Each structure stands twice: as structure tokens, then as C-alpha cells.
Amino acid sequence: MIDPTGAEPRIAIVTGGSGGIGRAVAERLAADGMRVVVGYAGNPARAEQVVEAIAAAGGTAAGVAADVADEAQVAALFDEAERLYGGVDVVVHAAGIMLLSPLAELDLADLDRMHRVNIRGTFVVDRQAARRVRRGGAIINFSSSVVKLGLPSYSAYAASKGAVDAITWILAKELRGRDVTVNAVAPGPTATPLFLDGKDHAAVEELARMAPLERLGLPADIAEAVAFLAGPARWVNGQVIYVNGGIA
């Protein structure tokens, strides 16, 4: 895609970019004129589908495998973005896992898995982003509306996303003087495979009715908020933006 202003395209890395919200974000940023590195963990075919969809729409993208909790692999992800496109301007850390259980019945192995991906992964990705994102850039983490909703069975997941909130607030302050914003989006119930997995129709309908708009969010709804933070929102910094259709 050619920028009619003649400006150099911005470069975005999207972790978890091969499916669900991450795919919608990658495609939206590409549609906005960015060159996108689609980070993925274990499904190269699905990542290639995203890259092909972006190319078919006139954008530029490449898929790069990386375990977000592995320091060496994340460093290599950023290295590849710089090798391909010359730098990094936007990092969207959308990779995450959600494993639900009442606290009293929680398998601690599930807690450890979410800690590794959702908390350690955010630290690892944000550390590289803090070192490499160019002036005028943006770092966007993914929190969740369940941090404040307090839904039963979400305690471990909400705890992991509460940690993301804290990382976001503090990193924004640590990057003083860099002209790099750090924010998080906190989706509400959104129609993705991650969210719908294991829920029966009645549960999904109940969650859809929670918002005054009386529907589940769509990945495109979340991508719209990310695009705002990645582009024009230069005076929004250190915030967690709840993108949930008005759920209290």
C-alpha cells in the first residue's frame, strides 16, 4: 500500500497475530498502511493465511514464529522485523491464553501456564519493545474486562491480566522522554475461539446480554480501538481502555 503523503510506512509487530483478535488487529493495521509482522506460536499455516489475506488486500506482512515467553525467540522476532522492514514503531501484544476454573478447584498447572504466557510473555515482549520501538511509536498490551467484572471461575485469568495492567501503567512512566506511548485494551466478551471454547449456548447468550448493546464484541471492534492507540492517540498514555460495549 502506498502512503499518499510520501511518508515511510510504520512497522508493527502483532503477537498472537494468527487468529481471533490478533488477526483482526494485524489486518486492520495493514489496512491503515503499516507493514505488519504477524507473530505466532504454533500454527504456521494459519499465520500464512493472515499474511496472504493482508497481501490480497494490498498490504505488506510477514509471519514469524516466536514463543512470547522465550526471551531468545522474542528477540529474534524483533530482529526479523528490523531486518525485513528497517525498524519497529508499534508493538501489539495480543498473545494470551485463558483457562477457567473456580479458585478452589483450580489446577495449579493451569495457573502456571497462564502466568508463563500472560505475565512472563508480557514482560518479555514489552522489554524488547521498550528497547527497540522508535520515537513516535506505541506499545499496546492486552488486558481484560474481567479484571473489574469479577466473574466466577475467572480468578486466575483475571489475576494474570491485572498484572498486565500494572506493567502497562509503570512502563508508560519508565519511557518518559522517549515519545512512546504504552496502553492496554481490555476487551469484554468477544466472539473468538478463545472466548467461546467450552461455553454452551446459554452461557454465551447470557454474556452477550451483559452489554447495553446486547451482543458479543467482534474482533474488528477491538482492532478499531487498537488502531486508534497505534496511530492518532498520541495523548493517550498509561491507560487501560475498556472495549466492552458498555459493561459496567
Score class of each variant (00 low, 15 high):
residue 142 F to T: 06
residue 202 A to F: 04
residue 69 A to T: 01
residue 145 S to A: 15
residue 198 G to H: 06
residue 129 A to V: 05
residue 178 R to K: 14
residue 94 A to R: 01
residue 154 Y to A: 03
residue 90 V to I: 15
residue 63 G to L: 00
residue 171 L to E: 00
residue 53 A to T: 13
residue 120 R to M: 12
residue 39 G to K: 08
residue 230 A to E: 05
residue 139 I to R: 00
residue 107 D to W: 00
residue 183 N to A: 06
residue 5 T to W: 05
residue 145 S to T: 09
residue 59 G to E: 05
residue 1 M to E: 05
residue 132 R to P: 00
residue 163 A to T: 01
residue 110 D to M: 11
residue 174 E to H: 07
residue 6 G to A: 03
residue 232 P to T: 07
residue 73 Q to L: 09
residue 139 I to N: 02
residue 188 G to A: 05
residue 213 L to I: 15
residue 41 A to F: 13
residue 108 L to V: 11
residue 75 A to R: 13
residue 14 V to N: 09
residue 93 H to S: 15
residue 40 Y to P: 06
residue 129 A to H: 02
residue 71 E to G: 12
residue 143 S to A: 15
residue 240 V to M: 05
residue 227 A to P: 12
residue 23 R to E: 15
residue 169 W to C: 12
residue 70 D to K: 14
residue 219 P to G: 07
residue 186 A to Y: 06
residue 118 N to Y: 02
residue 39 G to F: 09
residue 190 T to V: 09
residue 35 R to C: 03
residue 230 A to N: 13
residue 195 F to W: 14
residue 138 A to L: 04
residue 219 P to Y: 06
residue 29 L to Y: 13
residue 173 K to D: 14
residue 125 V to K: 14
residue 158 A to R: 00
residue 132 R to Q: 11
residue 228 F to D: 04
residue 13 I to N: 07
residue 228 F to Q: 02
residue 235 W to I: 09
residue 226 V to C: 11
residue 111 L to M: 12
residue 35 R to N: 06
residue 155 S to Q: 04
residue 247 I to Q: 07
residue 11 I to Y: 04
residue 207 L to I: 02
residue 65 A to C: 11
residue 226 V to G: 05
residue 13 I to L: 08
residue 205 E to F: 02
residue 53 A to Q: 07
residue 224 E to M: 11
residue 7 A to F: 09
residue 201 H to Y: 08
residue 112 D to I: 04
residue 22 G to W: 07
residue 147 V to M: 12
residue 113 R to N: 10
residue 94 A to F: 01
residue 149 L to E: 11
residue 75 A to K: 08
residue 248 A to H: 04
residue 111 L to W: 15
residue 222 I to H: 13
residue 68 V to D: 02
residue 5 T to F: 11
residue 211 A to R: 02
residue 211 A to F: 08
residue 245 G to C: 04
residue 90 V to L: 05
residue 115 H to D: 11
residue 44 P to H: 01
residue 15 T to E: 06
residue 80 E to I: 02
residue 184 A to I: 06
residue 213 L to V: 15
residue 57 A to Y: 04
residue 166 A to H: 11
residue 118 N to R: 01
residue 1 M to I: 12
residue 34 M to G: 00
residue 41 A to D: 08
residue 170 I to K: 14
residue 28 R to V: 04
residue 148 K to H: 14
residue 56 A to F: 00
residue 202 A to P: 00
residue 21 I to T: 02
residue 176 R to P: 00
residue 49 Q to H: 04
residue 247 I to L: 03
residue 115 H to C: 11
residue 124 V to Y: 08
residue 8 E to R: 08
residue 104 A to L: 14
residue 36 V to F: 10
residue 103 L to A: 15
residue 108 L to Y: 14
residue 180 V to R: 03
residue 28 R to L: 11
residue 137 G to C: 06
residue 44 P to D: 12
residue 175 L to P: 07
residue 210 M to S: 00
residue 208 A to L: 06
residue 229 L to P: 02
residue 151 L to P: 00
residue 67 D to F: 10
residue 206 E to S: 07
residue 152 P to H: 04
residue 103 L to C: 02
residue 144 S to T: 10
residue 88 V to N: 04
residue 235 W to S: 12
residue 236 V to M: 09
residue 36 V to S: 05
residue 115 H to G: 13
residue 210 M to Y: 00
residue 92 V to A: 10
residue 212 P to W: 01
residue 9 P to K: 09
residue 207 L to M: 15
residue 125 V to M: 13
residue 99 L to E: 10
residue 35 R to V: 09
residue 67 D to K: 09
residue 95 A to G: 08
residue 69 A to F: 01
